[in-house]
Simulated assay, not measured.
Amino acid sequence: MASLKRYFITNGQFLITTAQTEIYTVLGSCVSVCLWDKQRQMAGMNHYLLPGSKDSPKGDADLGYSSIAMLIRSMLNRGAHVENIEAKVFGGCNSWSNDHPLFSVGKRNVEVANTLLQQTGIQIIAQHTGGSYGRKIIFNTATSKVKMFMLSRSAAEVNEAIRRGFSC
């Protein structure tokens, strides 16, 4: 069997495909929503940096509200149907070890995904979010499965090592 083509997406990007591929990204406080239309064999994945709000500028894929809306709308425009779409949500760690709401970006990113998917009627069938460490995810659009690897150090730990003069 030929190897699958691989696409890397970073914050502010999303990808929709009916081709058998692997879409991958690395997440800290960012969130990725992986969508799969089981009837059309269509997959979509985004990666957003900040939650944004209902009043966020339309078209800013760095903001959760806009990014998720664009991802869903783009899939629907390509023939997907909401009742056939299932979602998997990843990311949203809070690696800064500060409980102040200003630093709870990961938690707020996850809340946006859960709220918008619920409002749209898209079922979340898998979710791995929160915690102190980031993740690498690989979405196989041939199988609709997502492989996830936990990162072993938080951003705060990496920054502290750099501050102390150690390489990472």
Rank of each mutant, 00 (worst) to 15 (best):
K5A: 08
R6E: 14
R6D: 07
Y7K: 02
F8P: 00
T10L: 06
G12V: 01
Q13D: 12
Q13T: 08
Q13L: 06
F14R: 02
F14T: 00
L15H: 03
L15V: 03
T18A: 09
A19D: 15
Q20A: 15
T21Q: 15
I23D: 06
I23A: 09
T25I: 11
V26K: 12
V26S: 13
G28S: 15
S29Q: 10
C30I: 07
V31N: 08
S32I: 08
V33F: 08
L35D: 05
L35N: 01
K38V: 04
K38R: 09
Q39A: 15
A43C: 08
G44L: 05
M45W: 05
M45I: 14
N46E: 11
G52R: 07
D55P: 00
D55M: 02
D55L: 01
S56R: 07
S56H: 05
P57Y: 06
P57I: 11
G59F: 12
D60L: 13
D62E: 11
Y65S: 02
I68G: 01
S74R: 01
M75C: 06
L76Y: 05
L76H: 04
R78A: 08
R78G: 01
A80P: 03
A80T: 03
V82W: 04
V82N: 08
N84I: 11
I85W: 03
I85M: 10
E86S: 10
E86L: 06
A87K: 15
K88R: 11
F90T: 03
G92F: 05
C93F: 00
N94T: 02
S95C: 05
W96S: 00
S97Y: 15
N98M: 10
N98H: 12
P101T: 07
L102W: 01
L102Y: 01
S104L: 05
V110T: 06
V110M: 05
V112F: 00
N114C: 14
T115A: 10
L116I: 14
L116A: 04
T120K: 15
T120S: 13
T120H: 13
G121F: 15
G121D: 15
Q123V: 12
Q123L: 10
Q123I: 10
I125W: 04
I125A: 12
I125M: 13
A126D: 15
Q127F: 06
G131H: 05
G131Y: 01
G131L: 06
Y133I: 13
R135W: 00
R135M: 11
R135S: 06
I137A: 03
I137Y: 01
F139C: 02
N140I: 05
T141L: 06
A142G: 15
T143M: 04
T143A: 02
